[in-house]
Design a protein around this nucleic acid. Structure first.
Length: 310
RNA sequence: GGACAGGUGGCCGAGUGGUUAAAGGCAGCAGACUGUAAAUCUGCCCGGGUUUCCGUACGCUGGUUCGAAUCCAGCCCUGUCCA
């Protein structure tokens, strides 16, 4: 299995397709598997930069745009789906090429995650309705360790820790003693991390957002917003959606919305950089140059040969 | 030409005599990261010195004062209005 990870707009999708085609050229089937949290949403074709049919060049793509925006997807669910796709590929003899920028998802797939059961919806709703300071105060009573470990303002993690103790009776820390579902020991992984120069990436991010706006991003967001879904859903928080929503409400003009979305993208890319620089194992191959047609071709061949020789 | 308003650190924007290297926000940089992760959070952010040290700084010049971003004078510039 190949894995190509890196920040948005680093050119990973094109590389994945090039690799898949290169494999096909040697008679080995391949399929591209999405490992990007927002690209799973059907409603976000443009805003999540989902590959177009042209860009897929006939290579099968899986886990792209298969989830409705009303659903709350998450790392464990994605990991289950990916495991399924990988198992199928093993049967058909195809090489899975994972591409994506969501480090947590990849880590969950490879190394597993704590087997916390589903949270009681009523408890979840109650916890998430709490203002962060109150949630943290509650957490200090229910799970002092977690409260001490977490930043009091860290809304997401404080809520998670609190809903877990309340719903399961065990603390998150206790659950996290175990990890389940990782496939790292069962597969031969050929990983590549793209860490291109920041100015190059920044420029690509800016241009890509501008293109998205030209190609209907505003309309796409408008359609999604018309569904009046819970604004806390991940699809509703994808980069571009809140900014365009603000524009459609008349608060800012289109240009301002674009600029804010571009800034959000740059900041996102930065966080991905930090993750991929430090979180993955040190022995994963890292590529710190920008990509062009030649280097994509070369990298595809390097990865292909590694995959074929084991 | 005249009348007002205003010129603050990369940007926006507080601050009207000392405790102000100057609130706050944005952008930027660095970091964290186990079920909303395109999320959430933490630190840094004038220059140098890698603990409360030095230098420079609030349009410019000069003045008042023990002490000024804050008061005074002149000048330059910007916006609005009247000509």
């Amino acid at each position: 299995m190949a894995l190509i990870a890196g920040p948005t707009a680093s050119g990973k999708s094109a590389l994945a397709v090039a690799l898949a085609k290169s494999l096909c050229g040697t008679g080995t089937g391949a399929l591209v598997v999405n490992a990007d949290a927002s690209q799973v949403y059907a409603d976000l074709r443009i805003l999540s930069a989902r590959p177009t049919d042209d860009e897929m060049e006939g290579v099968p793509h899986r886990l792209f745009g298969h989830i409705d925006a009303a659903e709350a997807h998450n790392a464990a669910r994605w990991s289950d789906e990916a495991r399924g796709v990988i198992a199928e590929a093993r049967i058909t003899g195809q090489v899975p090429v994972l591409v994506g920028g969501t480090g947590l998802y990849l880590r969950t797939l490879l190394y597993g995650i704590a087997p916390v059961p589903e949270i009681d919806p009523a408890i979840r709703a109650a916890v998430r309705a709490l203002p962060v300071p109150e949630a943290h105060a509650e957490l200090a009573k229910a799970d002092p360790d977690a409260a001490a470990r977490l930043a009091p303002a860290d809304a997401t993690r404080v809520a998670r820790a609190l809903e877990v103790v309340r719903s399961t009776g065990r603390t998150l820390g206790q659950w996290q003693q175990q990890r389940e579902g990782g496939i790292a020991d069962d597969i031969a992984l050929t990983p590549l991390i793209l860490l291109p120069p920041r100015d190059w990436l920044r420029d690509r991010c800016d241009r890509r957002l501008a293109r998205m706006f030209d190609q209907g991003a505003v309309e796409e967001a408008e359609t999604l917003l018309a569904r009046r879904l819970d604004p806390d859903l991940s699809a509703m928080r994808a980069i571009g959606v809140p900014q365009i929503a603000s524009h459609l409400r008349g608060e800012i003009d289109r240009k301002e919305a674009l600029e804010r979305a571009q800034a959000a993208t740059r900041q996102y890319a930065k966080r991905q950089f930090t993750w991929f620089r430090h979180q993955p194992p040190a022995d994963w191959l890292r590529h710190e140059e920008s990509l062009n047609n030649d280097s994509v071709g070369n990298l595809a061949i390097i990865l292909r040969d590694k995959l074929l020789t084991g």
